[in-house]
Amino acid sequence: MTGRIRRGNLDLVLEPGETALEGLLRGGAAVPSSCRAGACQACMLRAVSGDPGSLAQQGLAPALREQGWFLPCMSRPTGELVIQEGPPPAIAASIAEVTEIGPAIVRVRLEPDEELSYRPGQYVQLIQGDQVRAYSLASSPAEGRALELHVRVHRQGRMSRWLAAAAPGTRVGLRGPAGACFYTEGRPEQPLLLVGTGTGLAPLRGIAHDARRRGHTGPIALIHGARDPAGFYLVDELKGMVDGSGNFRYVQCAMSGEPSEGLEIGDLTQVTLRLFPSLKGWRVFLCGSPDRVNALKKQCFLRGAGLKDISADAFLTAEMPPPPLRTPANRTA
């Protein structure tokens, strides 16, 4: 069967031997590209339906493959391929509950009007008036339709202070999910290392539960970093995940204070590397402050974790410039 591609208003039948990229460009779509050999990933797009072919996903991280990202320069679809154009529409949600769960940290439960399909660890854009902020999802679809966010209430934070004071029933908009920081199946015995600072714990909590729910058998270690020992939250829940099997390990790491059982004092990167000196074969999830996440990412790679086995989600606060687009969701905009 001849390949056919659709994207927005574009709908064309591919010529014999033509790649999806060549077809898109012939049809007038503005798709950036460089090597056209499946190497540079400049042309990466997301398929909404249809099969781009395995060659077009060779070398992409499993999390990206699972969401339909592919390289159109290597794609010769044999059927119809529908490619995403522009951001997906926002959905409306009600704030169901706001609870203080830590020092200047609130848990916000949202009831979306329609069910959101997401993977624990992904994030959503929360829209309130003209303000938009990204928050990781701490919940899991298996727990029900409600979404759970952990929000650090910044002293000057327009959105976070508004959320902390929001009454139940208040309406907000949501866009997403997005992000590739989530558990992927296929290697249930692989050891997992989850390291996060502050509310970086939110996606890690979701990922840890998701891994277990999906039958992960390998060891899971979660290290939570905070400035001082008062900064930890969800402590009872995480301690409750430690069972007799030794398969779940929960470590707190504070920059200052007195060390005790389960509490390390020191630099988060140094402590992580001391506890886990070799990460060859490990799957690593890193979430939280950009400087910590980037330092850990580099060190975990140098200690043997494969680059495609490291998922990092650096949280940027609103004052900072937007992050470079890693996944080209808005590339055509």
């Binding site: 090597c35 056209r36 050999a37 499946g38 540079c40 990933q41 790679f301 680059l307 470079p324 890693r326």
Partner: peptide, 24 residues
């Protein structure tokens, strides 16, 4: 540098120097 982007460049480089499909 962005590690993913850098790895993609290294892949292109390794592809080229091993005689694989490259358009540089």
């Amino acid at each position: 540098v962005d590690m993913e982007r850098q790895a993609a460049k290294q892949k292109a480089f390794l592809t080229m120097v091993t005689g694989g499909p490259a358009h540089y």
